[in-house]
């Protein structure tokens, strides 16, 4: 395998990890505040659809992005109502949100475009184009560093860079600000936050709001950056892989970067080599596709470093009277 192949695989790994990373960070905010969210998949799907639909109708990818965020936020609000205000079961609410998105996107897509649930293909201003970083052309001839800079680091759409910037930003927000301290506290021990006179309800709504925005970015990237339009069920389980990555990352931002890169890389390798011949055995591509889930189960089992979720996760907070 030569350097160009490696760079190509890494390049597609970066593209494929971007929606995972955004969704994983989205889940991080929500779960750190004590609200389990298995509806990441549904929110991404809704965002992908609304982004592609608005981009197709207006021809502006930026309006599409806003619509994507709005679509995702709407479902976040449903999740908040069910799990924070009415203190319902957060897991059941997540399941419902996934189905709601899966059905609504096709229903609305068929109504608006009559293409069997697809949106028309996006072109030109309806998509996020590649950004050439400065000096990409000048550096290209330089061996090793040149292709790495020109092909791997430069030439992605803006949302890829946004996703990577979100990692240090999340770390700073979570571990270096008062808001972050409160957010983490509300996921571990909401009663203590309440005693300090900070509203648990408000903090959790803010957290799922951030979660909605990030899922919106992830979905919009899928439909307008990675792909060129919306197709039925286009998230294809990415929301669950992001959830797996979150556990893999043990609910930490830098871990999320590593975990989503690993899962993106697995997807890129599986996409490039349908089956891998290791001499003794041939690894089928199905195994590569299932590997993120298998790895997560192993991590969950606690054999390789234990993953401990936020302590108050999944429990609605009932204020003492």
């Amino acid at each position: 395998m030569d350097i160009n192949t490696i760079i190509q695989i890494l390049d597609s790994a970066v593209r494929l990890m971007t929606p995972l990373l955004l969704a994983c960070l989205a889940g991080l905010y929500s779960e750190r505040s004590g609200v389990f969210d298995i509806g990441l998949e549904g929110k991404m799907l809704m965002a992908a659809f609304s982004a592609a639909a608005v981009a197709a109708l207006t021809g502006s990818v930026w309006l599409g992005l806003l619509a994507g965020i709005a679509g995702s936020l709407m479902l976040s609000l449903v999740h908040g109502l069910a799990s924070i205000t009415f203190r319902g079961n957060q897991l059941i609410s997540g399941v419902a949100i996934n189905f709601l998105a899966s059905g609504l996107t096709v229903l609305l897509g068929q109504k608006i475009f009559a293409l069997g649930g697809r949106t028309p293909s996006l072109t030109g201003g309806g998509r996020f184009g590649a950004i050439r970083l400065p000096f990409a052309e000048t550096l290209e001839p330089v061996p090793v560093i040149g292709p790495i800079y020109a092909d791997l680091i430069s030439g992605h759409s803006i949302l890829v860079y946004v996703a990577f910037l979100c990692v240090p930003l999340t770390w700073w927000l979570l571990f270096r600000t008062r808001f972050g301290l409160r957010l983490r506290a509300v996921g571990e021990n909401p009663a203590s936050v309440d005693t300090a006179g900070v509203s648990v309800t408000r903090l959790r709504y803010v957290a799922i709001g951030i979660c909605g925005v990030l899922c919106g970015l992830a979905g919009a990237y899928l439909a307008t950056g990675l792909g060129a339009g919306f197709v039925k069920e286009m998230t294809a389980g990415r929301g669950f892989i992001a959830l797996a990555a979150l556990i893999f990352a043990k609910w930490r931002p830098w871990g999320a970067l590593f975990a989503t890169f690993l899962f993106g890389l697995l997807e890129a390798i599986a996409g490039r080599f349908p089956s891998i011949d290791l001499g003794i055995i041939t690894v089928p591509s199905m195994f590569m596709n299932a590997l993120p889930y298998i790895l997560t189960v192993i991590i969950l089992a606690g054999f390789v470093g234990r993953a401990i979720p936020p302590r108050a996760g999944g429990e609605p907070y009932v204020k003492e009277r």
Partner: peptide, 28 residues
């Protein structure tokens, strides 16, 4: 009709939402 069969998924989602997650909204 021109209603796609995905309508059923929406109904299913709403049933899960109301009988499961929003149970307290009706119960309280």
């Amino acid at each position: 009709t021109s209603i796609p069969r995905e309508l059923i998924i929406v109904i299913q989602a709403l049933v899960i939402l109301f009988t499961g997650a929003l149970d307290n909204m009706v119960r309280a």
